[in-house]
């Protein structure tokens, strides 16, 4: 695209050119499609709402470089920012064990999005997750290893490959899923992911259901991991209480359940972080949400891959 502009602060006439002004999207990655026009999806056993509890297991380096920006949730103070480093680390030491206890109590089937650096640093935690046989997907190398527009493609390709090779090696799992740190990408990220054997990714939060996303190496599936309902977004960005978070999740569930009566199966995706909801004063609200959801007849507690497979089998 022409980015010409004069130095005087006025705009070149090209500012009134609109090269992508035609049917569909302004890029070639996926088809324009309104959800209401798609074939309804039916979840296994007549369930109406798939609940995907996705836990971000993150490592925020103390020596954050912040290229090209400081990752949300990362260090904000001058080095060494012990305050933010340790409070994030709290999640991996303490909060996660509160999560696991709650998942087991209510029969929740979680999916873990893990930074490779964290898997390397905390073999105890990794071993426990492997033993549980929960699905692990890649959350990139670490939270300061961002994928971004303008990044050297060779450097990014190597970053994707290293993160995945090491995580696959450590977990013994095929690792089919991906969430970029900060859900940030370059224009090349999807191509590199597909090339490295990723089947689904969660950075494009532009739908309520999975959809096919084109790459140079075949299609990925974009899985709808809601940012709007994230604990980090609601509690630390919007500054709502954990109780408010719980109410919003319950309202969302009630609405999706209602919508599923006429529109087919729906997905309630909860992207949560042990350093946020794993705090003693917040965990109770997570438990209350999980208890209500897990006890509901219409809920299918599912991992990301299970949802993906069910969706794929009906849309192929």
């Amino acid at each position: 695209m022409d980015k010409k502009q004069s130095s005087m602060g006025t705009l070149d006439d090209s500012y009134l050119n609109y090269p992508h002004r035609s049917y569909g999207m302004d890029h070639e990655r996926y088809e324009w499609s309104m959800l209401k026009n798609r074939k309804p999806v039916a979840w296994p056993n007549g369930k109406k709402v798939a609940v995907w509890v996705n836990v971000g297991l993150q490592f925020f380096p103390l020596n954050q470089k912040g290229i090209p920006f400081k990752v949300p949730g990362g260090m904000t103070k001058p080095y060494p920012d012990l305050r933010h480093y340790t409070l994030r680390d709290y999640g991996n030491r303490v909060g996660i064990y509160r999560f696991l206890k709650a998942f087991d109590r209510y029969g929740v089937k979680p999916t873990f999005a893990m930074n490779t650096r964290l898997a390397e640093k905390y073999p105890y935690l990794l071993g426990l997750l492997k033993e549980r046989q929960d699905e692990i997907l890649s959350h990139g190398h670490h939270m300061d290893a961002l994928h971004y527009g303008g990044q050297n493609p060779e450097e990014e390709k190597e970053l994707v490959k290293t993160a995945l090779d090491r995580l696959r090696n450590l977990t013994g799992q095929s690792v089919k899923g991906w969430i970029s740190p900060a859900k940030n990408e370059s224009m090349n990220t999807p191509d590199f992911l597909a090339e490295e054997g990723i089947a689904y990714f969660c950075d494009w939060a532009n739908d309520a259901m999975p959809y096919n996303f084109k790459t140079k190496h075949g299609d990925l599936v974009a899985m709808p991991l809601s940012t709007e309902l994230e604990d980090h977004f609601i509690i630390l960005n919007n500054l709502h209480t954990a109780e408010d978070w719980g109410e919003q999740v319950k309202d969302a569930f009630a609405f999706l359940l209602e919508e599923s009566q006429t529109m087919g199966g729906r997905i309630l995706s909860l992207n949560i972080h042990p350093w946020v909801l794993g705090q003693p004063h917040r965990i109770g609200y997570l438990e209350s949400v999980l208890e209500e959801l897990a006890a509901h007849d219409a809920v299918w507690m599912a991992t990301a891959s299970e949802i993906l497979e069910s969706w794929k089998s009906q849309t192929a």
């Binding site: 695209m1 022409d2 980015k3 502009q5 602060g9 705009l11 090209s14 500012y15 999207m25 302004d26 890029h27 324009w32 499609s33 309104m34 959800l35 090209p68 920006f69 971004y148 527009g149 303008g150 859900k183 940030n184 990408e185 370059s186 224009m187 950075d203 494009w204 939060a205 532009n206 739908d207 309520a208 940012t227 709007e228």
Partner: peptide, 30 residues
């Protein structure tokens, strides 16, 4: 990938600015 405007940056992140773009697209799709 909008053109630059000297008085206002369209997106906070370098292109592709997924948080803002995907949220708006969600609105039209869903």
């Amino acid at each position: 990938d909008p053109p630059d405007n000297p008085f206002r940056k369209p997106w906070p992140q370098p292109t592709p600015a997924l948080p803002g773009y995907t949220s708006r697209d969600w609105g039209n799709r869903v």
